[in-house]
Nucleic acid binder design. Sequence first.
RNA 1: GCGCGGUUAGCUCAGCGGUAGAGCGCUUGCUUCACACGCAAGAAGUCGCAGGUUCAAACCCUGCACCGCGCACCA
Length: 919
Amino acid sequence: MSELPKTYEPQAIEETWYARWLADDCFTAHPERVSPQRPAYSIVIPPPNVTGVLTLGHVLNNTIQDILARRARMLGKEVLWLPGTDHAGIATQTVVERTLKKQGVIKHRDDLGREAFLEKVWEWKEKHGGIIIQQLKKLGASCDWSRERFTMDPEYSACVQAVFVDLFQKGAIYRGKRMVNWCPVSRTALSDEEVVMKSQSGTLYHFRVEIAERPGTFLTIATTRPETISGDTGIAVNPEDPRYKELIGLHAVRPLPVEMPRAQRLIPILGDAHVESSFGTGVLKVTPAHDKADFEIGHRHQLPVLDIMNPDGSMNAAAGERLAGLDRFEARKVAVECLRELEALEKEEPYQNNVGYSERADVPVEPRLSQQWFLRYPSQEASREVVSSGKMHFYPERWSKVYEHWMGNLQDWCISRQLWWGHRIPVWYYRGTDAAAARAGLGESVPENCVRTLEDGSLAYCGTAAPADTALWQQDSDVLDTWFSSWLWPFATMGWPEKNPTLQAFYPTTDLVTGPDIIFFWVARMIMAGFEYCDALPFKNVYFTGIIRDKQGRKMSKSLGNSPDPLDLIAKFGADALRFGVMRSAPIGQDVLFDEKNVELGRNFCTKLWNAARFRQMQGGATEGEIRSEWLSTDDKWILLRLDAAITEVSAALDEYRFSDAAQTLYRFFWNEYCDWYVEASKAALNSGDLNRRDNTLAVMDFVLAHSLRLFHPFLPFITEELWHGLGFNADLPESLGGRFLMQALWPKPLGADFHAHYGLLPEDEAYANARFEVVSAGRVLRRDFNIASNKRVPFVFQPASPIAPHDVEVIRILLNAETLENVGTEWAPPKGTPTALTPLGKLFLPLTGLVDVEAERERLGKEITKIEQELVKVRAKLSSDTFVSGAPAAVVEEHRKRETDWEAKLVEIRRVTDALSS
RNA sequence: GCGCGGUUAGCUCAGCGGUAGAGCGCUUGCUUCACACGCAAGAAGUCGCAGGUUCAAACCCUGCACCGCGCACCA
């Protein structure tokens, strides 16, 4: 056992242990070891963006997973924590494209072309892709790195393709021209989930249109988007609206584009129940190409669809010469200008409305009609049932409601993206004209349902490989939504569809840890994929973390610059400190307001742990000697009972995913109970010169420390491993059960009835120890009240109500830092004015020779009397109520009676002391 | 509009039917032979508001207010 250094230096220690764990393959899962005695435990990591960097959100999320994984190992389970990264289509493509533009390599990705651009993305991925994985290692994540996966790995891509083909064959995937959410910046369709509604302060423009059949008569329309007027192909009113219903069937003159002949600008006035008479003017302009609701109205009335925008959100020629080429927001101003010139603009009023934004690019999405691929979600019923029946459990429970609501309102999923980076859609379109020949050319072996005539009449082939005659078939240029690959993550990472040992041993996984913000994007979809392809739920429990916010409660974001770099925090405080600080302040189901002070607390705690171990080491003696029950002091028994309680509480908290409760309990136990009271009290035994007592105390300390290190290990893997070895606790353990690494040691079990019986641990030991600590506290208050500096040794006198063991008196003396603690009989009377404290075990005196201030003491006692009297008033008020005495349970009434007599006795005593002052 | 959280000490949060708790911050004393990233003592709260249930409410119920989030939306 080499001596521990004086200060804890996390950096070197963290690096060393992580390397040793890796060198010994401590994190590798072995499916062949799984058995009824050694059950499997598995988690798949929520794959971070391959080009991302570690955020505090990742720290929270992955620390929780690491705690679960490490504890599961200590519980004797075969653990697989499967790591990996996500290709994150739009995000990654955007980053690479932006960088290439910045470097002046390209102006647009078209300059490179698809193949060359993708090469650049792969280059980028090779260069930056490993960063976040390395950062997770710094955090101490015990992932099985031998099984690390990437969603664009060849095997993974094969899974994605196989699933697409299967769903195509089942008819769950279809292509159609639909209104989708279009991001003009990324120039791709988005799913509904990728659109966030934002409140906007805009303007409601009122403009008038003339009724063609009744010159000089006008209708007033309210709109927020005057730039789309050129795309209007109808005017709708509510068919019940008395103001307008007689106009139905007539025509209005659309004001824009101005240069267009009037005859071409006539659009029909129609009745549609969708129009609310009470809103605006009750007249709605219908723009089928640029509004989802309008598209439906247009569809009902066979209105033409007139697209007036380009994919990048600028106006096209159909918008008219004044608007063509302008960005949509610029065009809005010009359109208003045009209306004003035409004297058609009646008024502009400020207006609050909600606009859908592209979550990624943070610009308003444009509803746009385009050809896209859609998926009707599979296995919906099983997926809903598994959560509502409780077979799969959400923590906190309330998220299951959110899940249920979404599952009950499923809309088909737009899965195609107009990007290059991602899994290319495995569909080929026939270029020729002879459909029969095309079918024949595919060969006999191709299943009938792989070939389909689409809505637009084109012939499509769907398969995991291109048709042989590549000249006649052209692959769809789009890729799949990133989530269409990540929804397969729990099994595609384990080698599915092959039924290999890993998949068999570890699927379904045990726990999933993720943020509630991706409950629809990811969690729900994984559940459906799990049932569809593995016939089983993908995970049994889902733990939803809170969201990390800054001190002001704002979400962490790059643009606000309010997100500290976790690596800086690790460098400054250590990984254990970061883990502990974050865990202690992350209660279940609540968002976390991050404050560096929390990490500081973690660091301080590590230092405390370190020094407690140092203190033990400085005492020398045998490591983990035998505890002999006959030499146990009440303090020893007390700390063993507290340890037992801590084991039980921490285990229960972790079983229920109450991580911050577990951290709190550990903190309280180790700092307040072990260090503040036990270690201090044990100094009496260690310095007593009684070797039996001394050895026994050291044995108890080792017992408590060894158990504590195990309890702390999932939270603080590095420092505990270091101390485990530093204190030599590994020495007499089998190699695989803690002899080599603490991380392989067994999780502590509650001490149990036999242990209690053998060492004579009784509840009254705890009560007695607490009473002695009260004596000490009372003495310290006396010191304080009479301005005795805490380092100044003064004599105290103790007058116990009943005999007390000399050793226990010595403990009190040490804890009081008293010069002497004279133990006197009940006949002893203190000099007049001696400060006195009443304690559960007797009276404690602080004789202040020559310094007695009778008035000061009288005043001090007076305050105490007031306090006791207040308590008595409260308790007597209750007891004097008949309804209380007859209505409350007997035990409660009894407890109140005891409270009353206790206070009364104390009052009598303290009055006697007060009287003695002046006698 | 519907739903879900939250409102407890200056700050961040536990507690969720029977004597209001922690950490930080603050005040005071202490370089006491593990630790000043420490030790000791302390100040500090009509538990958002109003009703109700109960012998008893911070805790259960009902309304309201404010903060946050989600879903759905009327141009």
